[in-house]
Amino acid sequence: QEALTASVLADAPPQEQKQMLGERLFPLIQAMNPSLAGKITGMLLEIDKSELLHMLESPEFLRSKVDEAVAVLWAYQA
């Protein structure tokens, strides 16, 4: 699978960009949190795309954002 870079993304329309990022992020998030992966991915896709690209490159950064999203989700549902 070709690497998803800023230049590849820039060629796609904005809505498509989030779709592409979501398709890449979802399996990584699913590995961390299978039951909430869809909602977490949905939350993270609201973030700026430069940060989303960083998440694809840095598992530590992704994990920190996933943890953040889960905390927000739990607070919201409480």
Binding site: E23, F26, M43, L73
Partner: peptide
Amino acid sequence: SSHASWPPEFQPGVPWKGIQNI
């Protein structure tokens, strides 16, 4: 219901509509 509408859930292979108001 409005309670279940957030957050939008991403599903692989399904076009992402996100939170944009279209």
